[in-house]
Simulated scan of single mutants.
Amino acid sequence: MKNVLSKIVYFTLITLCLLGFINSPLALILGFLFAIIFKNPFKQHSHKFIHYLLKLSVIGLGFGMYLFETLETSKTSFNLTLYTITLTIVLGLILTKVLKIDLKLGHLITSGTAICGGSAIAAIAPIIKAKSNTISLALGIVFLLNAVALFVFPTIGHFLNLTQEQFGLWCAVAIHDTSSVVGAALNYGEEALRIATTVKLSRTLWIIPLSFFSMLFFKTNQGKLKTPYFIVLFILAIIINSYQILPPYITTFIVSLSKRLLLVTLFIVGSTISIKKLKATGLKPITLAVVLWVFISLFSLWYILK
């Protein structure tokens, strides 16, 4: 009976997200509270749901963007992306050794912080042959910090009077996962959302050189490099919108639906955060993640405001 009730509540909350009655921070909170009060009936499939819904949503957002503006944004953010990824990886390697953390766990946390959270962890894990428990710990820590970022970043952005452009760039660089980046920017403004999505996805491409680095660093040559094909579809969506291949009312509907799907994604992300798992993680990996996160947040904010 309880399992039936949990499914009813689960789909009711998802429906509220789809109808737009819930904003991004509330979607995450409700997901987290749902996981505490009820047993998640789809726990084993949640990460797959997140994986596909996020990519589908991001592709849909491409129908609200324009090609030349997107290229200009990516070009402007290139130096910041290069500096933050390089410095974060170097600092992560040093702190992993200093804190005496398992090298593979430290590298996954560092990769997730440097580039794009869960996507980077999922791409790098098979290359370095990480165990499932190590992957789960890294994902759990990253998802926790993503949840915090969703509330903290917009508050700081408004406090510092960051422009739409500044905030979009900042959250794209300093927040780990694409879902929380878009969630934070969604409430800040349309321009912030456009910039944040563009910069974050161009940043995702850095998974490829990081994969080669990981292969050399861990001396593995059997790992498979994962190409983020959804980025190609995202670019295709931008081209379709830029040249008005589809009528405006269709592209507008797709963008609106994509934003609602992102709310569903954030709800599911919240439902995967486990306090029990985080307690079992220990302080050292969390310390590593927090220090790296604070570093990339402060450095990128300084770079943007200088």
Rank of each mutant, 00 (worst) to 15 (best):
I231F: 00
I238G: 00
Q244H: 14
E190Y: 09
A185C: 10
V182W: 01
K276T: 13
S242Y: 09
K259V: 08
E190V: 09
T227S: 14
I250E: 05
G189V: 03
V264N: 01
S297R: 01
S271I: 00
L263T: 07
F213H: 05
R260D: 05
I245Q: 10
I245N: 05
F234I: 05
R203G: 06
S258W: 00
V294F: 13
L193D: 01
L278A: 14
K277E: 14
V290N: 15
F217S: 06
L210T: 04
S211F: 05
K200S: 09
I231A: 03
L266E: 02
A280G: 15
L210M: 13
R260Q: 09
G282P: 09
T197G: 03
T281H: 06
K284E: 08
T198F: 02
L193M: 07
S274R: 02
I239M: 11
L278P: 08
M215K: 12
I235K: 00
A289S: 15
E191K: 11
I245V: 13
Q244K: 13
Q244P: 07
L186R: 02
N241M: 01
Q244E: 14
T204E: 12
L233T: 06
F253P: 00
A280R: 13
V255G: 03
L225W: 10
Q222Y: 07
L298N: 10
V290A: 15
K226Q: 15
T197S: 10
G189F: 02
I239L: 15
T227L: 14
L257T: 08
R260H: 10
L233D: 05
L301W: 04
T227N: 12
L210S: 08
S211G: 14
V294W: 04
G223R: 12
S274A: 07
S258L: 07
I275W: 09
N187P: 04
S214R: 03
L186M: 09
A185F: 08
V182A: 08
W293R: 08
T265F: 00
F295M: 10
A289Y: 06
N187F: 09
I207G: 07
I207H: 06
F218Q: 06
T204K: 01
V255C: 13
L210I: 11
A184L: 03
K276P: 08
K259S: 10
V291R: 10
G183Y: 00
S211M: 12
T204W: 04
V269Q: 02
Y303W: 13
Q244I: 10
F267Y: 01
I238T: 04
I275D: 05
L225R: 11
G270Y: 00
A185L: 06
L266M: 03
V290M: 14
N187L: 13
S211L: 11
I207S: 06
F234D: 00
S300P: 08
Q222W: 02
F213L: 15
S211V: 09
Q244M: 11
A237F: 04
L298I: 09
W206G: 07
P248R: 06
L216V: 11
W302H: 14
P247H: 02
I245F: 14
M215E: 08
F213G: 06
L193F: 09
Y243P: 10
I273C: 10
I195H: 04
L266T: 02
L205S: 02
P248H: 08
V294L: 15
F234K: 02
I195S: 04
T251L: 02
R203V: 04
N221L: 11
S211H: 10
S256A: 13
F213M: 11
F299D: 10
L233C: 04
